[in-house]
């Protein structure tokens, strides 16, 4: 049963990820990216990270995608065809980086087979560990300092956004 669900999720996420990079219309790309993120949430549930799965849908599929849409709207991409044939340097560079990263992953898997493969049939303890309760217990005792640093990071993001968008007025 778990294998079937995993295979389905993997198929859908691969399909939607390919659609993201092949669509000419960026709005369609973003909608396919939402589908990819939903599949990732499914993977998180299968790995026992249930809290992360909920956050994945709320924050990534919801809020971050709104930001992506706003970027597309602000860039004012009128005709998708205008992009074609241009920026070949960027395309070549992107291809080089993608191939290099793929080779890196392959080299890693070749060196230690099965090392990067997660267990998609975890026991109950994984589901306890991935829940909000266990996560909170760890986050507010052992990892309190990184948690506060995350607050500073959010503060920096707020100030950065305001400083960039409100530059003209002040």
């Amino acid at each position: 049963m778990q294998t079937i669900i995993f295979a389905l999720l993997a198929l859908v996420s691969l399909f939607s990820a390919i659609m993201v990079v092949t669509r000419k219309n960026p709005v369609f790309s973003i909608l396919y990216l939402v589908l990819t993120f939903f599949c990732f949430a499914g993977f998180y549930v299968m790995l026992g990270a249930t809290f992360l799965a909920a956050i994945q849908i709320l924050v990534y599929a919801g809020a971050i995608m709104v930001l992506f849409l706003f970027v597309v709207m602000m860039l004012n991409l009128r005709e998708p065809e205008e992009l074609e044939g241009k920026n070949t340097l960027w395309q070549t560079m992107g291809a080089v980086v993608a191939i290099g990263f793929g080779l890196l992953v392959l080299a890693f898997l070749g060196r230690s087979p099965g090392a990067g493969v997660p267990n998609f049939q975890p026991g109950e303890e994984a589901y306890v560990m991935g829940g909000a309760k266990a996560l909170g217990k760890l986050l507010f005792t052992e990892f309190v300092f990184p948690f506060e640093i995350a607050g500073v990071l959010l503060l920096a993001a707020v100030i950065g956004a305001v400083a960039l968008a409100k530059r003209k007025r002040v």
């Binding site: 809020a63 971050i64 709104v66 930001l67 706003f70 993001a157 956004a161 968008a165 409100k166």
Partner: peptide
């Protein structure tokens, strides 16, 4: 301005 509202919402 829309983007600013969205960013602040995410924070």
């Amino acid at each position: 301005k829309f983007y600013l509202v969205a960013v602040l919402f995410v924070m």
